[in-house]
Design a binder for these strands. Structure first.
Length: 566
RNA sequence: UGCCCCGUGGUGUAAUUGGCAACACGCCUGACUCUGGAUCAGGAAAGUCUAGGUUCGAGCCCUAGCGGGGCAGCCA
């Protein structure tokens, strides 16, 4: 009775600060105790791992609290937005494993309503049309440490404002000639309250509304209202919007009729070491052809990670582990890498592929003979069965698995030494063949027929190598990726451009790799572990006669760590 | 020299809301292994930015500093 499972009690995981807020809101029956979130990207670029954190957060919270989550495209700026991006965003959210409530929403769907609210504010004397150019308005806004001054147009009558605003809408003015501003407080300590712009003139076709509008609402006059229209209860965004919150609330107070209010909550965006995360910088990498596209496997975009071989599960686990808080952070890429290894270790089949081949001839093995050896598909998953791999007289092993003068603790092949060939036999190196320049071109070995795998052979050797039968080998291309930047924080240097830290060796293409024949069946998106090397996935560049693999992440490598230390 | 936010091992996140710092990654040992992977066992690593205060007791509360970040788009 005294020691009954105290552990079970502790199992309730601790909550992050947003969950604490939500649970308190539920306890207080705020907004009828409902939880409704949304993921609101602007369709002006591809989603990256930072968005993945936000997606997991918003959709995850909805799931956890039996709520709903919308996907909403925040498309208030037609000059930057495109349908291409809308599509990639939907694909990425789905791929991560989430389904939004109903149809995707668009802020542009609310343009009529927003316009009505704008007229309402004008009539209430809380908004006015300003004729001044942008530079003048900016100057009048003051600075963070000094108050602004009021526009000479600030006290136009509602009637005049209404007429001017309608003329703006009707296309009577050119871009920049007039704006609609909220009449709040030019001396507010919060810059965003100094009569913020609500509408600007933009004679620009919108990807959804076409030419219907030539005035478009600003973010601040659209976001909270969109939340309100959709019944969002918890509007989660990143820290830089913290100072916008009073304005978010101010606009809502102008338009809301009942007691329902969405609540904005800010959290710290994700930063990853050895990469950049801003859309602007990622765009630059794409436009300057430093990478091959948004889905280049070196990019931190969701599409890049997908092509690199990351799984949705691994990214969701990563997002969980990263946590949610308000302090600035830089997550070690090692955590992301750990998340894929963990996932793929359980699921990926093991295959043998030699990246940098060295020929081995088994001199005591009959010429022309082939035997099929059974091997386990995945030792972590006994249900995944076995397959056969062909063995013959001539094989390839990894160049790095042989050394003529091996250091201590080198468990691989060397003159006179023995190793086990995975799922096959123990072989011994008898002779090293070299060309005139002294390069090793071939190894002559003998095998011990008594040591065939699976026969209960008792002999043990320290090393086990992967190998491929030369006769049966499939030629494949393998792309090895490394971090895109050499610096942990490439964007964090005051007077240096982030591109100065590009890693020149971030991509290495190997053309003559030798794979076991079973890999013939590999299809784009399949995940494999190449025995002793790492996890690899099939690239969409694959064509029938030419398989292409991307290395997702290498295996942890104790030997590499040992040698690096020296 | 205004306003807002933040400050816990190398990194990130916790600490039953005031009870004497935990989890994960990374790192180091060792065991095991037909992957130098995985797994298993163990270890080093913060005394919670600083200084005061309240309290029997403070990472949690108060005060003052210090440090980091954000805010002056007709971007989001």
């Amino acid at each position: 009775m005294e020691n009954i499972a105290p552990d079970k009690e502790k199992e309730k995981a601790s909550l992050n600060f947003i969950e604490n807020i939500i649970e308190e809101d539920i306890r207080n029956n705020k907004n009828d105790g409902k939880v409704y979130t949304r993921f609101p990207p602007e369709p002006n670029g591809y989603l990256h791992i930072g968005h993945a954190k936000s997606i997991c957060l918003n959709f995850g919270l909805a799931e956890k609290y039996n709520g709903k989550c919308n996907l909403r495209f925040d498309d208030t700026n037609p000059v930057k937005e495109e349908t291409e991006y809308v599509e990639s965003i939907m694909e990425d959210v789905h791929w991560l494993g989430f389904q939004w409530e109903g149809e995707p929403r668009y802020t542009s769907d609310y343009f009529d309503q927003l316009y009505e609210w704008a007229e309402m504010l004008i009539q209430k004397g809380k908004a006015y049309v300003d004729d001044q150019p942008a530079a003048v308005i900016a100057a009048q806004r003051g600075t963070p440490t000094s108050p602004g001054i009021e526009s000479p147009y600030r006290n136009r009558t509602p009637e005049e404002n209404l007429q001017l605003f309608r003329e703006m809408r009707d296309g009577k003015y050119k871009d920049g000639e007039k704006v609609l501003r909220a009449k709040i407080d030019m001396s507010s300590p919060n810059m965003h309250m100094r009569d913020p712009v609500m509408y600007r003139i933009l004679h620009e076709a919108h990807h959804r509304t076409g030419d219907k509008w030539c005035i478009y609402p600003m973010y601040d006059f659209a976001h909270g209202q969109s939340d309100y229209i959709e019944g969002i209860t918890h509007s989660i965004c990143t820290l830089e919007f913290e100072v916008h919150r009073p304005l978010y609330d101010w606009f809502l107070d102008q338009i809301a009729t009942g007691s329902y209010r969405p609540r904005q909550i800010e959290f710290a965006r994700l930063n990853l070491s050895y990469t950049v995360m801003s859309k602007r910088k990622l765009l630059e990498l794409v436009e300057k052809k430093i990478v091959k596209g948004w889905d280049d496997p070196r990019m931190p975009t969701i599409s890049g990670l997908r092509r690199r071989g990351y799984t949705p599960e691994s990214i969701r686990n990563f997002a969980d582990r990263v946590g949610v808080a308000k302090r600035d952070n830089v997550i070690d890429v090692a955590l992301l890498e750990h998340s894929v290894r963990e996932d793929l270790n359980k699921r990926a089949r093991r295959y043998m592929v030699v990246l940098d081949p060295l020929k081995v001839v088994i001199t005591n093995y009959p010429e022309g003979k082939t035997e099929m050896l059974e091997t386990v598909n995945n030792p972590e998953d006994p249900d995944d069965g076995t397959r056969e791999v062909p063995f013959s007289r001539e094989l390839y092993i990894e160049k790095a698995d042989f050394m003529e003068n091996p250091p201590r603790k080198f468990f691989r092949l060397a003159p006179g030494r023995e190793v086990r060939l995975k799922s096959a036999f123990i072989i011994k190196c008898d002779e090293v063949i070299k060309d005139e320049q002294g390069n090793i071109t071939e190894l002559r070995c003998t095998y011990d027929p008594e040591t065939r795998s699976g026969t209960g052979a008792q002999r043990k050797v320290k090393g086990t190598l992967h190998w491929v039968s030369a006769l049966h080998a499939l030629d494949v291309e393998v792309r090895l990726y490394d971090r895109l930047f050499n610096d942990p924080d490439p964007a964090g240097h005051k007077d240096k451009d982030f591109k100065e830290f590009l890693n020149p060796d971030s991509l290495k293409v190997l053309q003559d790799c030798k794979a076991e024949p079973a890999l013939q069946a590999a299809r784009p998106g399949d995940h494999y572990q190449f025995q002793r090397l790492g996890y690899f996935t099939v690239d969409p560049d694959t064509t029938p006669g030419h398989p292409v693999f991307n290395r997702t992440v290498p295996l942890r490598d104790a030997w590499a760590r040992m040698t690096k230390k020296k």
